[in-house]
């Protein structure tokens, strides 16, 4: 094990801890709720994208169907809360576990598919789930589920009328957990296998079974974290319907920060979310009211520009000296 690697990992951890501490202080200076909402969304997407990155970045299994797990988490949390009166904390765990199990069940046949076939399979599975939820009367069907406004604020039910700070800290914690899990995985056995597979396809053959299991693990971890994010979304927005939590757009939005920031890297998803989410919010709010689609033009143009100019992601701007955390995904899609 080379020394530089250990050193870099230690530095990453310290930097992350400092950033997290710094982030807890931000709300002191930012009191505007609109900006606070933007920060919460940024952190949520950072967490989601970081989780997505575990399966799709490190493991190279590009999923464009993660909205499925997000939606499951949101639905399980909302249903348990509104129909059975269970606390959202419990709902998030239940949703996370359910998603993890489903991710493994789906991973079993899907991981044998290569490249485009896998990507399309993920899109299609999420799409099927969306249609099923849209027709499932008991789960609210198209009407969705409204979380009733509670009279008083409470951490137990994660309901806060006007106060945004608790949501902010929750989202921050979620992002930290997602980051830490990624950090930890990087150095685990799985992390080594993934890197080995990317560097050397022959090694992949010999490691076949173990790698397959590690992919299943990655899918489960990734789905669990995304589902917890979904549960958080349900409690924060207080209303969910199939289109808004399981739509295909959502799968793309989850992947976008990681891709722009740097796929398969520790910092990429964070950086991507910090840049992308405020950008989308601001373009919509300040130039979207015209009804002429100018916000779409700006947004689309920027995505093209960044993805072409920085194929390794924006994070590569910072790491001239150090090696990328993991070798970039070896043309996973174009296999």
């Amino acid at each position: 094990m080379d020394k530089a690697f250990i050193q870099r990992r230690r530095r990453d951890l310290i930097v992350a801890a400092c950033l997290a501490l710094l982030a807890t202080q931000v709300p002191r200076y930012v009191t505007d709720v609109y900006i606070q909402n933007m920060m919460i969304m940024t952190l949520m997407y950072a967490a989601l994208s970081q989780s997505w990155n575990i399966l799709s970045g490190y493991c190279g299994q590009i999923s464009l169907g993660h909205a499925l797990y997000f939606g499951l988490g949101a639905y399980v949390t909302a249903i348990l809360y509104t129909k059975f009166g269970m606390l959202p904390w419990f709902g998030m765990c239940a949703g996370g576990l359910l998603s993890a199990v489903i991710a493994m069940a789906l991973g079993y046949p899907c991981f044998r598919l290569g490249g485009h076939y896998f990507v399309i399979a993920t899109i299609v599975i999420a799409e099927i789930a969306l249609v099923l939820f849209q027709n499932w009367e008991w789960a609210g069907a198209a009407l969705g589920i409204t979380i009733p406004l509670s009279k008083q604020d409470s951490w137990l039910t994660l309901q806060f009328a006007k106060d945004k700070l608790p949501y902010f800290y929750f989202a921050l914690a979620l992002a930290c957990v997602a980051w830490f899990v990624t950090w930890w995985l990087e150095d685990s056995k799985w992390g080594y296998w993934w890197r080995a597979v990317k560097d050397n396809p022959v090694a992949a053959e010999s490691l076949g079974v173990v790698v397959f299991n590690s992919k299943m693990g990655a899918a489960a971890v990734s789905a669990f974290l995304v589902a917890v994010g979904g549960g958080f979304y349900a409690m924060y927005v207080t209303y969910i319907d199939p289109e808004s939590v399981m739509g295909f757009q959502f799968s793309l939005l989850m992947a976008l920060p990681a891709v722009l920031g740097g796929i398969g890297t520790l910092w990429g998803p964070m950086l991507g979310a910090v840049i992308l989410i405020p950008l989308t919010e601001l373009t919509r709010s300040y130039i979207g009211g015209s009804g002429r689609g100018v916000d779409l033009i700006v947004y689309g143009g920027l995505i093209i520009a960044i993805s072409l100019a920085r194929p390794q992601g924006l994070v590569s701007l910072f790491s001239r000296k150090r090696k990328p955390a993991a070798q970039p995904v070896r043309e996973a899609v174009a296999s």
Binding site: V33, Y34, N37, M38, M41, G144, Y233, V237, Y239, I240, D241, S244, E281, R284, S285, G288, G289, G291, D295
Partner: peptide
Amino acid sequence: ADHQADPQKGRAETE
């Protein structure tokens, strides 16, 4: 304000 038919955005824009 533009809510793009998304309940989350509608919420944020209303706020």
